[in-house]
Design a protein around this nucleic acid. Structure first.
Length: 465
RNA sequence: UCCUCCUUAGCUCAGUUGGUUAGAGCAUCUGACUGUUAAUCAGAGGGUCGCAAGUUCAAGUCUUGCAGGGGGAGCCA
């Protein structure tokens, strides 16, 4: 029995083997034509472009062709030919068509005409079949691969940190509880509190808000490590830049100080932008045309710019001298507001900015304390359009200094004894940062809402699909 | 969570100072057309105006509450 292998449309479109027999499979985007000839635009997700299938109506059963509608899935055997029409170089002259799955045109939600992104969010199970989400998902894949490639090529070891954590000391926000206790009738202690000793892990557990503390443990053995996994925040954040479930990349490097950390962050981001330009140009051109006319120029400009590095203190001086009127006043010691960051990145410098040496009271306990007693060696990378894309720091490796901070902030020592042990046994200067994967994808795709760069977004009041 | 705007046909929207039978484009269906490119042309079908209550002779339109969504802010990645 003859068995022919399916060709991917991305390869067919590049092929010049005119006259050869090929087999293609995919989903119908549109069908048009007249009673003599039909044109089917077929897409299999391998590339944003469709392959045109030419159907001589007389050669096929009428009922078969009736089933070929927008959204249906078909298999086509035919001859690869040079296109007689405009708009494409190659097309397939159909000889056999098999319908795998019909799609009732009366009820299939996707039309050949464009849909709003808001509507597509309501049909997230079908939106990968659109040009936009095909492009976003291919870019998202390329960025995930590029991240692993970058770290692998630079001698980093990929560490899998736990999704379920028994520590609530990470201090990165509200957590989702993980439990097998009976929600209707949970065991309670005499004082009324839940009795977690009867829970699955014998203690209170949550979904992770960061893999950083565990990544630091890895860096204290393997020197260069990174995590890349899901992260969960139970914050009631309703913005185009926040998700309850998102993916984060967290490299952690022994023997790096904050300047090494900044060098890595800048080089890493530029590598990823270049990787997108090198491997996703078809998709970027589509997004550039449909959503953001400056997208490709912006990616190139980031690659070619030197990120501006300055201290928080210097940034405050610039903001106070700017003559701008702020909704929130600028003062040393207060966290910078979105409007302040945007001014620095988009107006004052016109390129990515890395702010360092923040007041210690507005930053996490693990950041390396400076000699001035007021600031810590934190760093935030601020990007145009999306704001903070990376947050990181040199870590406090001195046990006494770290202990003082933990006591000041009333962090229970019993929860972080294992973290403190790294400072007790062979401590080393080290640094790291966290990159929000979806924020990276936002920047690289030019999409405006973070719910449109993850297949199935999780956000307050939204866990469908 | 706060501020603000929105919710009318499958989709995107219009709907006047409250007034009789709620409109358009696209999509869908039927027909026409010998190579189309978001094909084109002609015709047809398609609505509990987000949900609930209230004001009024009369509510898509005004008021209140609730739900969902967009934008901005906070929290952050």
């Amino acid at each position: 029995m003859e068995h022919k292998r399916r060709s991917k449309i991305i390869d067919v479109l590049k092929s010049k083997s005119f006259g050869s027999e090929i087999l293609i499979k995919g989903w119908v985007r549109t069908k048009r034509g007249n009673k003599n000839i039909n044109f089917i635009a077929l897409n299999d997700g391998s590339v944003i472009h469709n392959l045109q299938v030419v159907v001589e109506v007389a050669r096929f059963d009428e009922n078969l062709l009736k089933q070929v509608t927008t959204g249906s899935c078909i298999s086509v055997k035919g001859t690869l030919v040079e296109s007689m029409g405009q708009g494409q170089h190659v097309e397939v002259q159909a000889k056999e068509i098999e319908v795998y799955g019909t799609a009732d045109p009366e009820t299939y939600p996707l039309q050949k005409k464009g849909h709003s992104l808001e509507f597509l969010r309501e049909i997230a199970h079908l939106r990968p079949r659109t040009n936009t989400f095909g492009a976003v998902l291919r870019i998202r894949h390329a960025m995930a691969y590029g991240i692993h490639k970058y770290f692998n090529d630079h001698g980093f070891c990929y560490i899998h940190t736990p999704i379920i954590t028994g520590s609530d000391a990470e201090g990165a926000g509200e957590m989702f509880r993980v439990t097998t206790l009976d929600g209707d009738n949970p065991p309670r202690l005499p004082d009324g509190h839940l009795d977690y000793t009867q829970d699955f892990f014998g203690k209170e557990t949550n979904l992770t808000v960061s893999g950083q503390l565990e990544a630091e443990l890895g860096a204290m053995a393997l020197s260069l490590v990174y995590t890349f996994g899901p992260t969960f925040r139970a914050e009631n954040s309703n913005t185009p830049r926040h998700l309850a479930e998102f993916w984060m990349i967290e490299p952690e490097m022994a023997f790096y100080d904050i300047n090494d950390n900044m060098d890595l962050a800048e080089d890493f981001l530029k590598f990823l932008m270049q990787y997108a330009l090198d491997h996703c140009m078809d998709d970027l051109e589509f997004l550039n045309k449909m959503y953001d006319n400056e997208l490709i120029d912006r990616l190139k400009s980031v690659i070619n710019s030197r990120f501006e590095r300055l201290t928080y203190t210097r940034a405050v001086e610039i903001l106070m001298a700017s003559g701008q009127s702020w909704e929130f006043p600028v003062s040393w010691g207060a966290d910078l507001q979105a409007e302040h960051e945007r001014y620095l990145v988009e107006k004052h410098f016109g390129k990515p900015v890395i702010l360092t040496d923040y007041p210690r009271d507005i930053k996490a306990f693990y950041m390396k304390q400076n000699e001035d007693g007021k600031t810590v060696r934190g760093m935030d990378v601020l990007f145009p359009k999306i704001g903070e894309i990376i947050g990181g720091s040199q870590r406090e490796e001195n046990l006494d200094a770290l202990m003082r901070r933990i006591q000041e902030l009333h962090i229970p020592e019993k929860d972080v004894w294992w973290y403190l042990d790294t400072r007790k046994f062979g401590t080393a200067p080290h640094a790291g940062f966290g990159l929000g994967f979806e924020r990276l994808i936002l920047f690289v795709t030019g999409m405006a809402n973070i719910r449109d760069v993850i297949p199935f977004p999780r956000a307050p009041k939204n866990a469908e699909f």
